[in-house]
């Protein structure tokens, strides 16, 4: 590309083409959706089976695995940020949404624990899962995530109609619809782009 005289029409076409190239760039490869989706899916199913067949004294300890996943996530994000060639406005918004979600989950756990309101936590966790999932889908203009968010909210309502043990199955279904399936679709879209 050489500096040269070009018409106003050419200028507008060039601006349009460059803005579209940057705008249509898909920066999420779906890795974190798949990582968290599969971990929570596996923990929920394991917890359910362990309770149902009375396999362990404290089956809830399986959720300690999520702390290891937090470490994996931090390492992954640090490496990914170093490789990043471009930072988009939507990436910043999505990061902020998930940080808010993390903080909300932490506060929710503390509040529920303080008031001993564990009975409500199942529905509230599904409600909270829906918020960042739907908003990420909205910002990325990615329908599977929006549908995933809506599915979480419907399952949150559904969780009030089932016995507490079946909440674990609802949780597994929620992450399957909200994170695992969109995660694979995001990965496919990302690979096609690159």
């Amino acid at each position: 590309m050489q500096p040269e005289n070009f018409s106003p029409k050419d200028s507008l076409l060039l601006i349009d083409s460059m803005i579209n190239q940057a705008k249509n760039r898909f920066t999420d490869n779906g890795f974190l959706y798949l990582l968290w989706g599969w971990v929570i899916f596996a923990c929920a199913i394991f917890h359910f089976v362990a309770i149902k067949f009375n396999l362990f004294k404290h089956p809830e300890f399986v959720w300690m695995v999520t702390w290891a996943v937090v470490i994996v996530q931090v390492i992954y994000l640090v490496k990914a940020k170093k490789k990043e060639k471009v930072k988009t406005y939507s990436d910043g918004i999505i990061d902020a949404i998930w940080i808010c979600f993390g903080i909300c989950m932490l506060v929710l756990t503390i509040v529920m624990g303080r008031f001993n309101l564990w009975v409500y936590i199942n529905s509230l966790v599904l409600l909270f899962y829906g918020i960042p999932t739907f908003l990420s889908g909205f910002v990325m203009r990615f329908t599977p995530l929006k549908l995933g968010g809506i599915a979480c909210w419907l399952l949150a309502i559904g969780s009030t109609f089932v016995a507490p043990i079946y909440y674990l199955i609802l949780l597994a279904v929620a992450v399957l619809i909200a994170w695992i399936i969109p995660g694979y679709l995001l990965r496919k879209k990302f690979k096609n782009q690159n």
Partner: peptide
């Protein structure tokens, strides 16, 4: 009003920040 400079600014208008290699790849 120069193709390459306009292309660079148009790309940077759309993103928060971009690395040199990204601009090189997009502007060819």
């Amino acid at each position: 009003h120069s193709q390459l400079r306009l292309a660079v600014v148009s790309l940077l208008i759309s993103v928060r920040e971009a690395e040199f290699t990204f601009l090189k790849e997009k502007t060819n």
